[in-house]
Design a protein around this nucleic acid. Structure first.
Lengths: 193, 193, 193, 193
DNA sequence: TATGAATGAGGTTTCATTCAT
DNA sequence: CATGAATGAAACCTCATTCAT
């Protein structure tokens, strides 16, 4: 039997993705899981704690799914680097579609309860991108003129834009190789002189 | 004296931008304006109606502030077109910082009350971009291989990414000519072969 | 120009008849009259005061419209007495349909603000009926066994039952001579040995 | 322990009977029961829903308490028929004094939320009376001249008139055999040639 | 007289959380 | 571990009434 705690998180993610954090009631979640309200509080001390656990889960997925050293090892130029990075990223997101939707949406909206956590997530992403940026610069793959700020905007902006529209349309095969290639292509062009 | 209705909208925008839609109470708004609760309901029949009015306001700003025909008339190539478009867009957003934050954030989160309105806003943006896209293609400024889907992702993604980070840091001079130039430059490169 | 105060009362009666006392807002009334809210309070010190004025108005209609001495003078037996009384009553009610509906309905429902007034109205009616009852008994038109309590139930019950159904159906010619005759007939039979 | 839902209905009936629907607040009801406000909404989704449940309850009492076939079986003539019917009716009403008061009062007043339900109640009563009327006519107990409309007015009017006055005076032994006999007697006389 | 914007007490309803069983 | 009835603070909204103009 799967862990009760996991069960709750899965049900919550599905409902959060559909109705948003504020419009999801504890009653909705426990009904979906098939447990009593009191039981929920045996596993999470509050609704907020549940959401924090979801943020943590997504952070773990990303940490495990994106290994810059491996990507560096496998790539020969800017294009291949970007492509591998994007493929890895899309794999993580497609494999956790609802969780990704939830985190993406709520991180953009404002909730003082979570703002600190989302800042940490963003810092982690910034560090990963910075590492990548430094590597690409050292290798001469991107021009010295490029500053990190816009490197970040291009990467994050294009990917999040695609994620938001693709994930929500619940298509099968969201991120096939063609989309990966195209995305990588546009980002690479933006970053090349 | 400024219109009471405008006063309420302005106060609401400021608080929504800071605390989000759900965490903002009518009590917060009326306190900020310095009126009684009942007075609020003389001007808006509900909290939802207030928010719909804000969406409408932003739609009007955009409609008035972005005139593709004028941009076309003033531009000679892809670079200048993108630059003028971005300058206009940033001007609108910087001139209505809080409103832009509010709309941007809540449009990403999920609220069944507004989802229809945000879809309309997105359709309007899509149409504007489509017009631009067709123009650029006809003029031979962008390659025939470029499909509109990614044209949209690049434009919207990069701009929204910049907006979200810049607006929230409440700096003065958010969108000076240098940033406009840089943004235009990256987008233009992404869209050129 | 008709008296403003009368105008307000007339509009109020129409709306009260349609929506009931509690569901009628001062806003409804002033809108119907075409005056401002403040103006209402120049003529009535409160919603309650308006309703009390309506009760008073109905009491006056009844007092003016039903003259037992005249009825006695015109009648020869139980049947003719009852018939004249009922014709007079129906004339009053049909001539003030909405007001009658309002008073009838609210007198049955409970409102501690008006309960005293309605008790007075009922006492007045009881006294009128008692006078009639005594007269009929003296003349030997009704049997000695008949007690007043049931005399009252028969008269009031049958008439109110007819009123409630007839008035609400907004027919023309509600109380023609045939209905008067029938009503009188049934009441007369009930009261005869 | 009695069902919580029943407890709430009983308390509500008592207060509605005393103060009327509009003047009764949820706060009054929960205080009477000794529960918190939220608890009320575990059992009824709104004040309106509570009232609809009370209407339903009264309809059930009447349906269970008045069995025309049994009355027909037990009666030999108009007088006995009317007497049994009235005894049964008075028993129901006396056994649910407050509920009867509430339903009677609010059915006369106007509330668009319940008007449909009260129309159904009236239709059911009309059908019951129609059945009785047809039976009495077939048996030759009432004259052919009698039309149903006035049969209804006489029955309903006299009974409701008695109910309203007797119930509200909160006497013990409201409907003893003497009152039943008298009521039956007057109605029977009204319906006989 | 007349106005109508403003008031604020008071109503209904929601829902995260608790706790006795 | 599990339950689910109960809680009550806090939210949204209404509307009779006031008062400065």
């Amino acid at each position: 039997m799967r862990e009760r705690r996991e069960e709750i998180m899965d049900a919550a993610v599905e409902i959060f993705a559909c109705k948003g954090y504020y419009n999801t009631k504890i009653a909705d979640i426990v009904e979906a899981v098939g447990i009593a309200k009191g039981t929920f509080y045996l596993y999470f001390k509050s609704k907020k704690a549940l959401f924090l656990a979801l943020i943590k889960k997504q952070r773990n997925f990303i940490e495990e799914g994106i290994n810059l050293e491996k990507i560096v090892a496998r790539s020969d130029d800017l294009k291949s680097f970007v492509k591998i990075l994007i493929r890895d990223a899309f794999n993580i997101y497609a494999g956790n579609r609802d969780l990704t939707i939830v985190i993406l949406r709520e991180s953009v909206s404002v909730n003082e309860d979570f703002v600190g956590e989302f800042e940490i997530m963003d810092q982690e992403r910034t560090e990963r991108l910075k590492t990548a940026y430094e590597y690409l610069k050292e290798e001469g793959y991107i021009d010295l003129e490029n500053d990190f700020e816009f490197f970040y905007y291009v990467f994050v902006g294009i990917i999040e834009s695609i994620l938001l529209r693709k994930l929500i349309m619940k298509e099968q095969e969201l991120f096939d190789e063609e989309i990966v290639a195209k995305t990588a292509n546009y980002i690479e062009k933006a970053l090349t002189i």
